[in-house]
């Protein structure tokens, strides 16, 4: 019995961990091997992967089903434009500053909407996002309802030449995706993260075992708010133009993200990553078909919900008992045969 140990590693997770470094190096080197259009697409994929991972932490783990995360995407975009153009702050300083501001703003919002439960909470988050949208439409310095463009001097100031700028945009997007996924994995592995997983499964038991549920959810909401704001900055740095309707679009920043997480597998780390890849594969192959593309998206969602209600990854995991990111704590050394 003295040989019992607790570990998180599985054979698959070790293999993936070893593969991770070369994959990451290849991705960092993308500006040298990928075309301009590909680089832009990969940047978009990285940012959507971040949004999906964050929404999954919120809805899949903390049980906070928000349909208003566009509030923070838009906030990020506007904060980045305001900080750089109006306040004259260096773009690289503006990014962390905006993320911090997003978290600070998320705190009172959380206090307010946490009074709502279930469907009412979801509606409340949407209303919040609308409040944000209408507020920014009032700011004439940022173009009011018609929006504004990022001034060329700021864009030029970020890197010399077009190629360098595009490489920089990709590195920032990749960096944020790695930061977000890494932070979520580390968080879920921590004691606090295990507590959050427990809340996901059973709130009554979690409360009775000493977990402060409100506090756990509050921390998650605020951190997700801050990081979503950061992703928002990069989305609009890539677009170079912002308007209230684009910044606070429930379709682009929440509906598609929910689709990604649900088909990939809610409540798993791998789900949003796989979901993002499936979503972009569908979009890139079918976007020319116009309306048919949206019908296909709907069909995919329906088929997956009927055949694999826990998403693609949930289905694979339940079937083969696998895990790429090592989260589970397993006891090894049990005498199975004896």
């Amino acid at each position: 019995m003295s040989t019992l140990t607790v570990t998180r590693r599985t054979r698959l997770s070790t293999v993936v961990l070893i593969l991770l470094a070369p994959i990451l190096i290849a991705l960092i080197a993308a500006p040298w091997w990928a075309g301009r259009a590909d680089l832009r697409l990969m940047g978009e994929i990285a940012l959507y992967m971040s949004l999906a991972t964050l929404w999954n932490l919120l809805a899949g783990y903390a049980g906070l089903v928000s349909v208003g995360q566009q509030a923070y995407v838009g906030l990020g975009g506007y904060l980045f434009f305001a900080l750089t153009m109006l306040a004259g702050i260096d773009p690289y300083v503006a990014l962390p500053l905006a993320a911090l501001a997003g978290a600070v703003i998320a705190a009172p919002v959380a206090v307010l909407i946490f009074r709502l439960r279930g469907a009412y909470f979801a509606i409340g988050t949407w209303v919040m996002a609308e409040v944000f949208r209408l507020s920014f439409a009032q700011v004439s310095a940022l173009g009011g309802g018609s929006g504004t463009s990022l001034s060329a001097s700021i864009v030029r100031g970020m890197a010399d030449g077009r190629a360098a700028r595009e490489a920089m945009a990709w590195w920032l997007a990749l960096g944020v995706a790695v930061l977000v996924i890494g932070a979520v994995v580390l968080f879920l592995r921590s004691r606090q993260g295990v507590a959050l997983t427990a809340i996901r499964d059973n709130e009554v038991a979690a409360r009775s075992l000493g977990i402060d549920i409100w506090r756990s959810k509050f921390i998650v909401y605020v951190v997700v708010g801050g990081l979503t704001t950061l992703v928002g900055c990069l989305i609009f740095l890539q677009k170079l133009r912002i308007s209230p309707d684009a910044a606070f679009s429930v379709n682009d920043w929440t509906a598609f993200v929910i689709f990604i997480v649900v088909i990939g597998g809610i409540g798993t780390i791998e789900g949003p990553i796989i979901g993002t890849l499936v979503f972009f594969a569908l979009r890139e192959t079918m976007a020319d078909l116009g309306t048919l593309y949206l019908i296909a998206l709907g069909l995919v969602a329906i088929v997956i919900m009927l055949k694999a209600p826990r998403g693609l990854w949930g289905f694979l995991r339940d079937r083969y008992n696998i895990e790429i990111f090592p989260l589970s704590r397993r006891v090894t050394g049990l005498n199975k045969g004896a």
Partner: peptide
Amino acid sequence: FQVPQPFAHMTVFENAYVAATQGAG
């Protein structure tokens, strides 16, 4: 609990681990 309230998607060990890290700190 009289009617058991397990964390159904976590392992037995993890169920205990939650109590040890949170309840017992």
